[in-house]
């Protein structure tokens, strides 16, 4: 039996987190199938077929899936799952929304947000905001798992030549319907795969001041992130929140500006290679995890940094 990965995609290509999820699947089995469900999703299906390690693409191309809801997709996943030992999805809002729904349909206890694979039944997952790592062994016949993307190397999006199989959709669920999507449009890299992230917190003080962060990010091709406090205050959209209940990131360079370093934030950044903190309070907890700390007023330091880079 083989492993099934649920693709997160935008109908054109696989999202980066899907490639990390395939990277995790590779540690379980050599025979990896991927479900690409969407509408006008031929390009995503083709790119899935070319992805390294994929042996089969299960394709559902249906108008009903132009906006995937848990009620639509989970019954499909639950049916397919019976042919697999493991079903993996990224621990993104996409995967978190749909996979537990499928798990309950199968009477399976999902394993959330794994950060390591010990063997086919045993996994590590961070709990308590990443302040503890639990090693858990599942007794379910089928394992349903969401994958913490930063913990696994992505598979390459080239080199594969998978067979494509069409499968039917189950029609539209009448329980919920799509109304609107307000997408955050940005040319910057995605947070979960960015090499450099500049993040701002409450210390930035206002939405207009956030331009300081954005200018610096643009100068060095970085992604922009934020603490919860900055998002709550409306400085920046919700999908920029990094931490326990936001995104988990691991860039080569993370620069935290005007962020105090609450545990809920730190858990989202502590796998970064280098952490820099700029804060005018020398006792801010962020300095305990920063490789390089600069005690300074951000309104002086950030423009200077931008000028000199």
């Amino acid at each position: 039996m083989s492993v099934l990965v649920i693709a997160e995609h935008n109908n054109k290509r696989l999202k980066a987190v899907t490639l990390n999820t395939i990277g995790a699947a590779k540690q379980l089995d050599n025979d990896i199938h991927i479900l690409v469900a969407g509408s006008s999703c031929n390009s995503a299906v083709e790119s899935a077929a070319k992805t390294e390690n994929i042996t089969k693409v299960l394709k559902i191309n249906s108008k009903e899936l132009s906006h995937v809801t848990a009620e639509n997709i989970a019954p499909i996943i639950a049916d397919l799952a019976k042919n697999y030992t493991h079903v993996l999805a990224p621990a993104s809002t996409f995967g978190k929304n749909i996979l537990p729904h499928a798990a309950a349909l199968l009477d399976v206890q999902q394993i959330s947000d794994i950060s390591a694979i010990i063997d086919n039944d045993t996994f590590e997952r961070p709990v308590y905001a990443g302040n503890a790592i639990a090693t858990v062994k599942s007794s379910d016949d089928i394992k349903l798992i969401t994958v913490r993307s930063i913990a696994f190397e992505p598979s390459s999006n080239e080199g594969g030549n998978a067979h494509i199989e069409n499968i039917p959709s189950k029609g539209k669920s009448k329980l919920s319907s799509f109304v609107a999507l307000r997408e955050t449009i940005s040319d910057r890299p995605e947070l979960t795969s960015a090499k450099i992230i500049i993040a701002g917190g409450r210390g930035i003080g206002s939405a207009s001041n956030f331009a300081l962060i954005e200018k610096l990010a643009n100068k060095i091709g970085a992604a922009v992130g934020a603490s919860r406090a900055a998002v709550d205050a409306g400085y920046i959209p919700n999908d920029c929140q990094i931490g326990q209940t936001g995104k988990i990131v691991a860039p080569d360079l993370y620069i935290a500006i005007g962020i105090s370093g609450a545990i809920q934030h730190l858990t989202g950044i502590k796998d970064s290679k280098i952490i820099v903190a700029i804060n005018n309070d020398e006792n801010a907890p962020i300095f305990q995890v920063a490789d390089y700390g600069l005690v300074a007023d951000l309104f002086d330091a950030v423009p200077e940094l931008e000028n000199k880079l």
């Binding site: 809002t93 929304n97 319907s177 799509f178 109304v179 999507l181 959209p237 919700n238």
Partner: peptide, 15 residues
């Protein structure tokens, strides 16, 4: 609140 922004859905009750 989703990774790419914000999505609005209409749910039939019960929900």
């Amino acid at each position: 609140e989703i990774d790419g922004g914000r999505e609005t859905l209409k749910l039939k009750m019960p929900a």
